[in-house]
């Protein structure tokens, strides 16, 4: 009677799936409900007005693009730095390797609110330097737009660097463990052939590292995409406003919570990270499957 364990398996998985999926039903239904409320119900007044409002009345497109630009750039940067650094940490036999790894892992226990004020001071100082440099090389009317891009406070660059720094420790860990499983023979061989560092990375390591990079990139993207505290504190200009802030502002901007609008925005906000998961899922098991010592 092999049927019973099978049945148990389906029952258990269905329960876990119900737990995982239930909250999404509410968001999906409420976002199409002209009369949405806090409670799960079948909409009587089907509408797409909640979605269109995000883009017509509010600056939904701007929020969305800014989030994509900033988080996308931070993800790419995390993958590049994490890939190089992870490789170095895997191959290095320096004494500081382990202390370095433990430090960057344990520093993650510091809740982000503890770092905000010091971080703001560091970035503001650097921001003033950037401003001086740009002032010297650019005509005055270009300064403001340039600062939007290169500014460290209230600018793309600052946001990208902060998010990268916050995601980097996990990326370094993932990629270091991943490279540990990639045989050293490949790079030894390339080294003996006289390949330069860049050649080795491009021709030998990059193809091998792809699953690891995808996994590290996925986690970085999802975590950075969901961060709201840093955009809350570091972004002020409406042109730079990002999705989580749009969401937070929509909440209680007027004296009642507009659940239809909120859920529509939440659904849109979830889409990119769900899509990212879809793309990178295949790489995950390969990454960790090799990366964990059995």
């Amino acid at each position: 009677m092999a049927k019973r364990p099978q049945l148990m398996a389906y029952a258990t998985l269905s329960l876990i799936s119900a737990y995982c999926a239930l909250p999404f039903f509410w968001a999906a239904l409420a976002s199409f409900d002209g009369n949405a409320s806090l409670f799960l119900k079948w909409p009587e007044d089907w509408t797409t007005a909640n979605y269109t409002r995000i883009f017509t009345v509010e600056n939904g497109l701007t929020w969305f693009m800014n989030s994509l630009i900033v988080v996308g750039a931070a993800t790419v940067l995390t993958m590049v730095l994490g890939g190089l650094g992870g490789y170095a940490l895997s191959r290095s036999n320096a004494w500081w390797k382990r202390p370095f790894l433990y430090t960057i892992l344990l520093i993650r226990v510091v809740p982000p609110p503890a770092l905000i004020v010091p971080l703001y001071k560091v970035l503001l100082t650097a921001n003033r330097a950037v401003q001086e440099v740009l002032r010297a090389v650019l005509p005055p009317d270009m300064l403001r737009p340039a600062m939007r891009v290169f500014g460290l406070v209230d600018g793309y660059l600052g946001m990208i660097l902060i998010l990268t720094a916050l995601q980097l420790p996990l990326a370094l860990w993932i990629l270091k463990t991943f490279f540990d499983t990639v045989s050293r023979d490949y790079d030894e061989a390339a080294l003996l052939d006289g390949a330069s560092l860049m050649q080795r990375i491009r021709l030998v390591l990059l193809p091998l590292a792809l699953p690891g990079l995808a996994a590290a990139g996925l986690f970085a993207f999802i975590s950075a995409w969901g961060d709201f505290l840093m955009p809350l504190i570091f972004i002020s200009s409406p042109e730079l406003q990002m999705l989580p802030l749009g969401l937070f502002r929509a909440f209680l901007r007027v004296n009642t919570v507009d659940w239809g609008f909120l859920t529509a925005l939440a659904v849109l906000y979830m889409v990119p990270s769900v899509v990212a998961f879809g793309f990178a899922r295949g790489f995950l098991v390969r990454t960790f499957g090799g990366g964990v010592k059995g």
């Binding site: 809350l232 002020s236 200009s237 409406p238 802030l245 937070f248 502002r249 909440f251 209680l252 901007r253």
Partner: peptide
């Protein structure tokens, strides 16, 4: 005019 987050604490 710079719009700040709506909740008073934020």
């Amino acid at each position: 005019v710079i719009e700040y987050p709506a909740p008073e604490k934020d």
